[in-house]
Amino acid sequence: MKFLLKLIQTHRRVRQGGTRYSALVVVMLFGFFLEAYMHNFNLVYITLFFVFAIAYVAGPLGLYNIGELEAKFAPRGRLFANTKGELYFAITNNSKTPAWAISLHVNTLSSEVGRIEGKETKEAPITIILPKRGEAKEDECYLQSFFPLSTVRFVLPIEGGYDTLVYPQPQGIPLRSFLQKQAMHFGEEKDFDGLAPYSGAEPLSRIHWPSVAKGETSVKTFAHEQTTQELAFNFMDAGTNDEERLSQLCLWVLECEKSHQPFTIEMPNRFIQSKKESIDAILEYFARY
């Protein structure tokens, strides 16, 4: 009784649709029916009834398989525009028995989850590329299963889908180049300590012109350079348009975070100090800018 009640409740939550295999079952049933009726073969009748009954019970079993699942968006990690990222969903199986052949779908994207043990929560990722920074929302998120026979597609919508923030795409000049541009060396220019291959990011003053004349583009390296104590970025200098500037700043912020370097950013209406705000808050500001 409990099982039936559960099934009725589940029926309302789960969408069902036939697959091409259900069409195959219909054709098979018709074929068996003709064979059985025309020749009065009880063996064929038995096969026909088994095919029908198994296809029929596949419905409630499949429903029960997916119906006991609960899924919700579980934000984890950062998502950047136009960059491969992963959306995580926490899928809980409330049944004692495992749920089989589950896949996670976001719009047209899908990811195999496989089995989820009974009374277990599994965090399932789905790889996604979001094109724009800012708030990203999608209601078309669902769990899908073809269990048990592939004849019916069971779809359990994930309530609320996902609602997350996409940060600007981190791209532009690497922080190293920015620092190199800003770096001041000590002593005369001829006091350089060695040569290094030109990476394309070094300022013109660093290029070792004699080696260029010889056909090799090298840059001068100095033993003692004055490093910038606090990086000061300026929104307006970071690019030619807002998206480019945000992408550039996003890249620098992430690099600074990696190398634990404090920084400041002068935005048109705001002055950001990494010592006072968290990186996530700064990135969120960029995302919503």
């Binding site: 020749h39 009065n40 009748y45 038995i46 009834f49 029908f52 009954a53 029929y56 019970v57």
Partner: peptide
């Protein structure tokens, strides 16, 4: 096991015709 009762019920009650066995 779940499908067995359906098979039995269908087998008993599904209307047959009295064609000859091939």
């Amino acid at each position: 096991a779940f499908s067995l009762p359906w098979v039995i019920v269908l087998f008993i009650f599904f209307p047959r015709i009295s064609f000859e066995h091939a």
